[in-house]
Amino acid sequence: MTHTEFVYTTYIKTTPEKVWNAITNPEFSRQYFGSELVSDWKKGSKWQSISNDKDACKMVVGEIIESLPPKRLVMTWHHPEDEMDKSEHSRVTFEIETIEDMVRLNVIHDRLKAGSDMARGIAVGWPLVLSCLKSLLETGKALNVRALKDHVRTNPAVKKAAAQ
C-alpha cells in the first residue's frame, strides 16, 4: 500500500503561545477549523472534532502521541468508524517555531493512504484551515470559515451548490 504525506506552512505575526492556544482551545478551532477540536492535549489522551452543525465535515478522532506546548503536538487522525483499523490511522504533526517577529507553523500530515478520500479531503482542507487560522490570529476575524466548510465537504457541497 502506498502512503502519501503533505506539508503545509504558514507564517503568522503572533506568538507561539497564541498559536498553541488556537490549536488547543475549542473556542478558536470552531472559528478556523469549522468544528471544535476537543482534548486535554496530554500524551496518551484522546482528541476529537465536535460540531453541532450537520453540515460540518465528517468527525475526526485520534490520540495524542506527543505534546510539548507551545512547540510541538503530534496526534493520530482517523474517522471514528476506523478506530480498530490501524491502516486508516494517519498522523498530524504541528511544529511551532519563532522566526524573527513571526511564528512559522508547520503542519505535516503523513501516513495517509494515497488516493483515499481522507487524503483528498485534507489536501483541500488544511490550506484553508491554515489561512483562516492566520487571519484569525492576525486580524481577530476568521473570514472564510463557511468557505472552508463548503470546500471540505466535497461532493455534498457540489450537490447543494447545483441545487441552488
Partner: peptide
C-alpha cells in the same frame, strides 16, 4: 498551497465558495 489560499481568502467572498467549488 497555503499562500495561494491566503490570496483567495482576500478576494473570494465566503458565500461564493460553494459555487466556485462546483
Amino acid at each position: 498551497p497555503v499562500p495561494i489560499s491566503e490570496i483567495c481568502a482576500r478576494w473570494i467572498d465566503r458565500f461564493e465558495a460553494g459555487r466556485l467549488q462546483a
